[in-house]
């Protein structure tokens, strides 16, 4: 072995156990979801299933409200993401480009909201949503998740936009664009990596949130996957492990797909910053 290969070998020795450690629960989830019921509780446990069955998937999809919950989660996550991205992009642009009284204070206050534990906010938020007539609706979840994701999104995008040279917009405006046109033609493409990061963050937050969903929503029409799957498969007397694993696999798939798709945008975008002379 040459000296040049040694660091790579050491890196492999360190990272592979870590990867296996992190991936094992996911793998176990996948394997459990396709094992026949009879194989689940054998001792010692079999690592690989002796027979593969998709019975659990069929039961989750046909005999439970899983698809309803899935649809709810999707609506909530997509709406939250869109709302957060639109508001945060415009807000961050305003914080970076326009001078007005209290701008810095506003930016700091926004971050201040993160100092409060989310449990503290649950009761007031619930009461507000009841007064607004939004209790027990998907809209209440969108409102709650937007209020969590927005401060972080604003700060993330603010730092991204601060890195976009003002001259670029000035050039676009001299070249014939309106301010809005310059924003769309020049600022948005430059901020794209930041926008994608923000969108991913918001989507994951809305998709995985549990506590607020548990408190704000208690009907199947508006229940998202996280609380829905828990209430239908876990009771005080019994946990439907095989169904739970099948449902978990299907819950994770959208996130994995989205991550796989956007990962290259996330990394490639960072190299495309402004031009310096």
């Amino acid at each position: 072995m040459t000296n040049r290969q040694r660091p790579a070998l050491i890196a492999s020795l360190v990272t592979w156990p870590l990867v296996l450690l992190i991936a094992f629960p996911l793998l176990w989830m996948l394997l459990t979801s396709v094992k026949p019921q009879a194989e689940l509780f054998t001792t010692p446990p079999d690592f690989l299933p002796n027979a593969i069955t998709f019975e659990h998937y069929r039961r989750v999809l046909e005999e439970t409200a899983f698809l309803q919950y899935f649809r709810n989660s999707l609506v909530v996550a997509v709406s939250t993401t869109l709302l957060v991205v639109v508001v945060a992009v415009l807000g961050a642009y305003s914080l970076v480009r326009f001078a007005y009284r209290g701008r810095e204070l506003l930016a700091s206050l926004v971050l201040f909201t993160y100092l409060l534990p989310s449990v503290v906010l649950i009761s007031p938020l619930y009461l507000m949503l009841v007064k607004l007539g939004l209790a027990n609706t998907l809209a209440s979840l969108v409102a709650a998740y937007t209020s969590f994701a927005l401060p972080y999104a604003l700060w993330l995008l603010r730092s991204f936009m601060a890195g976009i040279p003002e001259d670029l917009e000035a050039a676009a405006m001299v070249d014939g664009a309106s301010r809005m046109g310059a924003f769309v033609d020049v600022v948005l493409p430059q901020a794209l990596p930041g926008i994608i990061s923000t969108a991913l963050f918001s989507f994951i937050l809305a998709w995985n949130e549990y506590l607020y969903a548990l408190v704000l929503v208690n009907s199947d029409e508006a229940r998202p996957l996280t609380t829905g799957v828990m209430t239908m498969l876990i009771s005080a007397f019994n946990i439907e492990w095989s169904l739970l694993m099948a449902a978990s696999v299907m819950m994770s798939v959208p996130l994995i797909v989205i991550f796989a798709f956007f990962q290259k945008y996330l990394t490639s975008g960072f190299g495309a910053g402004g031009v310096k002379g």
Binding site: D167, D185, A272, G277
Partner: peptide, 20 residues
């Protein structure tokens, strides 16, 4: 008049080329 309607063109010190 906004910059777009002044019939001017400008070259910036930073060149301000659109990177994308």
């Amino acid at each position: 008049l906004p910059p777009a309607e002044r019939d001017i063109a400008m070259v910036f010190q930073s060149y301000a080329l659109y990177p994308h």
